[in-house]
C-alpha cells in the first residue's frame, strides 16, 4: 500500500469549549481542546465512556457545535455556520458510519445507499451506476436487492459504509464501526476502512473501544475527561 499524501492540515480544532446541560447543571466536556488532523490521515480516538469521543465526532460532522473556539475542515469554518449550511455541508463533505449500521429496514441495500443521492440532481441511470460501483467497492454488489434483515452484521456494516461513500466525501466519521461485529467481520471492516484511507485518500476519524481496530489507524488519540492524553502512538 502506498503512503497517503499529506498536503496540509485538513481538520483544525482550536481552543474548543463544549459543555452540556444535564439536570439543570452545566457539565463541561472540553475546555481549550485543540487538535489537528491532516488530509488523508486515519485517526482512531479511544477513551472511556463519557470522555467526549462521540462529542468530537458529532462536532466534526457538523451535528453538534462548539460553545467556543474554531473548528475548520478544509475551507469550511464550521463554527460560523448555521444549521442549514451545516446540513448542506454535511451532505457534500462527510460520510458517517454508525455502530449499529442504522439502515432503514424497509429499504434494500441499494435503496439505503441511494438515500443521500435523493438530494442530488442525478438521473436514474447515473444513480444506478454510482450505487453499483460503491456496492461493488465494499464487496456487496451481489446483495444489492436484499433487505437489511437478510444480511449479516458485517454485510450491513458494508452497506453502511457504502451509504457513507456514495456522495464521495473527503471525510469519513466512524462511530465504533466494529462495535457490533464478531472478530472476523470486524477485521474485514477495518481492512475495508484502511483500503478507503490508503487507496482512495479518505480522511478517517474513528471512535472505538477496540484496541485491535486501532492497528489500522495512522495514529491513535486517547481521550480522558475531555483531554487528549500523551499516549499518542503512530500506527
Amino acid at each position: 500500500m502506498s503512503d497517503p499524501i499529506r498536503l496540509q492540515s485538513f481538520i483544525t480544532l482550536s481552543e474548543i469549549d463544549k459543555s452540556y446541560r444535564m439536570g439543570g447543571q452545566t457539565v463541561p466536556i472540553f475546555q481549550d481542546l485543540s487538535l489537528t488532523i491532516e488530509q488523508g490521515e486515519f485517526v482512531a480516538v479511544m477513551g472511556p465512556s463519557g470522555s467526549g469521543k462521540s462529542t468530537i465526532l458529532n462536532m466534526l460532522g457538523g451535528i453538534d457545535r462548539p460553545d467556543r473556539g474554531k473548528l475548520t475542515i478544509g475551507n469550511s469554518q464550521l463554527h460560523r455556520m448555521g444549521e442549514g449550511a451545516l446540513t448542506a455541508w454535511r451532505a457534500q463533505h462527510v460520510g458517517i458510519v454508525f455502530q449499529f449500521y442504522n439502515l432503514l429496514p424497509m429499504l434494500t441495500a441499494a435503496q439505503n445507499v441511494e438515500i443521500p443521492l435523493l438530494l442530488k440532481p442525478l438521473n436514474a441511470r447515473s444513480r444506478r451506476e454510482r450505487i453499483r460501483t460503491v456496492l461493488d467497492l465494499v464487496g456487496i454488489g451481489d446483495r444489492a436487492h436484499h433487505l437489511p434483515s437478510q444480511l449479516s452484521g458485517g454485510q450491513q456494516q458494508r452497506v453502511g459504509i457504502a451509504r457513507a461513500l456514495i456522495s464521495d466525501p473527503q471525510l469519513l466519521l466512524c462511530d465504533e464501526p466494529t462495535g457490533d461485529l464478531d472478530r472476523k467481520s470486524a477485521t474485514e471492516i477495518m481492512e475495508m476502512l484502511q483500503f478507503l484511507n490508503k487507496e482512495l485518500g479518505k480522511t478517517i476519524v474513528m471512535v472505538t473501544h477496540d484496541p485491535e481496530s486501532t492497528r489500522y489507524a495512522d495514529r491513535t488519540l486517547f481521550l480522558n475527561k475531555g483531554v487528549f492524553e500523551s499516549r499518542e502512538v503512530a500506527a
Binding site: T87, I96, I115, L119
Partner: peptide, 16 residues
C-alpha cells in the same frame, strides 16, 4: 426518532 436523526446526519435538511 433515532432514524430521523440518521437521515438528518446523512444530509437531509429539516424541511426534507
Amino acid at each position: 426518532t433515532f432514524e430521523i436523526g440518521v437521515l438528518k446526519s446523512i444530509g437531509l435538511s429539516r424541511h426534507r
